[in-house]
Design a protein around this nucleic acid. Structure first.
Lengths: 116, 116
DNA sequence: TCTATATTTCGATATATCTGGAAATATGGA
DNA sequence: TCCATATTTCCAGATATATCGAAATATAGA
């Protein structure tokens, strides 16, 4: 993943409505959701939704497929993996274990709970 | 980390110059770098740099401290951890192990290299 | 082919972000 | 106190992004 692609992915996620769209698609899982269902669920006018879907798609974060009259959108988990890897590799002071919260080293690294 | 904070962090990283600034600070490590050194290294005019530093700081991604006449900036690794956790927890179809590239399950999940 | 549905593209407007020169502020030394 | 250095804030113009009504496109059924 190049810097340019990373910037595009961050830009796509840097907007409340788009983040909501993305998360709704995460909930929906691999089957995805048609544009209409998203528009209704998030109460966004169709042209506005279409604009944001195009942004997310341009960033490679979601995929589009047609099923009869509906266009169905779903998350591309692989791209999100790339984004997380980019942040971990390049943005954690060369110590990715400091930034990756769910590795097996986490409990070792974390200080014990303070006695109250 | 709320959605709002996440959006702010993504917006901060969604710009070439700012991403370059952030990465330079990652290289510099916990000691950080004075604004002047960043301006020279990245060939950015002082007011422009100052603007971008303010954005990164507003997003909580970097810290500022004064040392004599210089203002020294350094990454806040904790905030980056939060951002990565946000993506992993909320944006990976409820299967964070799919998106966290550096867990011990990675080699198990990845297909073997193709023979050439 | 005609009509209805699902969604996008067009286009105009509003809002936000980016840029960098000039001026202001903070610090330290002579 | 005066001057030099480091950096920010102010400001105005340029560029990019967001919004959504109206019109266009794609699909399917009668």
């Amino acid at each position: 993943m190049t810097d340019g692609l990373a910037v595009q992915a961050f830009a796509a996620l840097a907007q409340e409505t788009r983040l909501a769209i993305y998360r709704r698609l995460v909930e929906a899982g691999p089957m995805g959701l048609p544009a209409g269902a998203l528009a209704e669920a998030l109460e966004v006018p169709a042209p506005t939704l279409s604009f944001h879907l195009a942004q997310l798609r341009g960033a490679g974060l979601i995929t589009q497929r047609r099923s009869s009259r509906s266009l169905i959108y779903a998350v591309d988990v692989g791209r999100m993996t790339d984004v997380i890897a980019f942040l971990s590799d390049r943005c954690c002071s060369g110590q990715p274990e400091l930034c990756l919260p769910s590795t097996r080293t986490r409990t070792d690294a974390r200080p014990r709970r303070k006695a109250v």
